[in-house]
Design a binder for these strands. Structure first.
Length: 446
RNA sequence: CGGGGCGUAGCGCAGCCUGGUAGCGCGACGGUUUUGGGUACCGUAGGCCGUAGGUUCGAAUCCUAUCGCCCCGACCA
């Protein structure tokens, strides 16, 4: 993409309404624009990252054997009356009447609807196990939305629901989600720690929240800091192997890690003092096993091998997709701007043409741009007629992980400069070598 | 929902107390200059001063109401 033809309304100054760093940077980098309290438009740069995150979530869910579908944002109230949550949910649920005076609502979650879909088409144990999920906009009418997309009223969420024949199978689904979530966050360059949590109105007694450590987090967290070093890395997990999946979960949940809701001071004190940490975290996902809470109230049953009919065992699992943008920025930025991890960056690299209008630098920048495209790499080419300082500042602000600088000085020697946003270190090399290096870097993020 | 703050140009703000032709910086646009870290100069455009009502000869300014936004707390898959 040529910057001269793109829509990237960056701001030099901090908008006064934004208090925390991720919100400020998203506004300044031209990623979002607020339309009402807690409701945002996603401008092109923000939309790219959002789509990138969504893609990773999809890929990891599908890898785990889960099946995507798409349910609507608007739901009929009757479904919620059936589960009993229409009255329970309270003011957070946005209630709407249609022209025929029917009660509707903007979905804050989809347990009822997915259960309705399930019971309408699934009757036999032979159709299980089944895990369905979607990535769809939710609306929760928060009393006080804040922190930009971190606590918006409208937000994009992946929510999945497993249907299993018995508790063991359902707990395997729970574990499978934990592993797939760990992979998902790692691909985004995040360390998200599974922490035992409280289940709240959703019910059930088995639940973990995934928290990204950040000073601006809304939850207080207590943990053994050795959990931070746990990594899934390159290992291949067979998602159908119950013991293997359970083993990974065991590995990631044995060390103490809890939010203030479930904190146990006595257990915490058992941790060696050097590893005992209290901090704050951003919740970016949660998994639940809740058994037959919804299947019983809504009549979602299957016929078993012996001919009897039983309510299915269920769980639900969520990832805050739009919130992740804020969480990633909170975890990865400096005083100049955002630092995107390679896995979620809106463009693979930036190209800064230091002397726009100069025949040699224009030609070199242009051919570099095309060479990258030929290798499937998307560059944001700053071809504006601006000062170098302005171009560098823009690139730093929007946080592309790599920048190729093309200038007359370097071209005399036949080189361009490849700079890491994260370390700030630059290396001179031929344009061909720069392309090859970027190809290698991104090979690990395909 | 309780407490506090703020609505004036795209962004950041001054002016309000003490009523009298709406300003500054950045940005945008045109030009000159410049070109390896937000350059300099000249010029131009852009505002029902959130909205409605009131007081007054006269309201961005005083009064009332209302809408919106932000922060703290409470709340929160």
């Amino acid at each position: 993409m040529r910057l001269s033809r793109y829509f990237l309304p960056v701001l030099k100054e901090n908008p006064s309404e934004a208090q925390i760093v991720s919100h400020r940077l998203m506004l300044r980098a031209g990623m979002i624009r607020q339309q009402a309290a807690g409701i945002y438009s996603w401008l092109p740069l923000g939309y790219r990252v959002l789509k990138r995150i969504e893609t990773i979530v999809h890929e990891e869910q599908i890898r785990a054997g889960h099946i995507p579908l798409l349910m609507p944002t608007l739901q009929p109230a009757d479904l919620w009356r059936e589960s009993g949550r229409y009255d329970d949910y309270g003011q957070e649920m946005l209630r709407i009447k249609d022209r025929h005076d029917r009660d509707m609502l903007f979905g804050p979650t989809n347990e009822e609807m997915i259960t309705d879909i399930f019971r309408g088409s699934v009757n036999s144990y032979k159709d299980l196990p089944l895990t369905l999920y979607h990535i769809q906009w939710k609306f929760r009418d928060e009393v006080r939305p804040r922190f930009g997309v971190m606590r918006g009223r409208e937000f994009l969420m992946k929510d999945g629901y497993n249907f299993d024949i018995d508790k063991d199978a359902a707990l395997h689904a729970y574990n499978r989600h934990m592993v797939s979530y760990l992979r998902t966050y790692e691909r985004m360059g995040l360390t998200a720690i599974p922490m035992r949590a409280a289940s709240g109105p959703i019910g059930g007694d088995n639940t973990h929240e995934f928290l990204v450590l950040a000073q601006t987090g809304e939850s207080e967290v207590f943990y053994d800091d050795r959990v931070v070093d746990l990594k899934l890395g390159d290992r291949q997990v067979d998602y159908d192997n119950r013991a293997e999946v359970a083993g990974v979960c065991q590995e990631f949940t044995t060390l103490y890690a809890r939010t203030d809701e479930t904190h146990d001071a006595a257990a915490f004190d058992q941790i060696p003092e050097a590893h005992r940490k209290v901090g704050r975290g951003i919740e970016v996902g949660q998994i639940f096993y809740f058994g037959t809470k919804y299947s019983e109230s809504m009549g979602a049953t299957v016929v078993t091998a012996d001919g009897s009919r039983v309510p299915v065992e269920m769980g639900s699992h969520g990832i805050g997709v739009s919130r992740l943008l804020g969480a990633i920025i909170e975890a990865s930025h400096d005083d100049k701007g955002i630092i995107w991890p390679e896995g979620v960056t809106p463009f693979h690299c930036g190209i800064v043409n230091l002397k726009q209008g100069d025949a040699a630098t224009d030609a070199a920048s242009d051919s570099l741009y095309k060479a990258l495209a030929a290798k499937g790499l998307e560059a944001l080419y700053d071809d504006r007629n601006e000062r170098a300082g302005n171009k560098f500042a823009t690139m730093d602000l929007i946080g592309l992980p790599w920048r190729v600088t093309v200038g007359p000085r370097g071209l005399e020697k036949g080189v361009v400069e490849l700079t890491s946003r994260k370390t700030g270190l630059s290396e001179e090399m031929t344009p061909e070598a720069a392309v090859e290096r970027l190809v290698q870097i991104y090979a690990a993020h395909r």
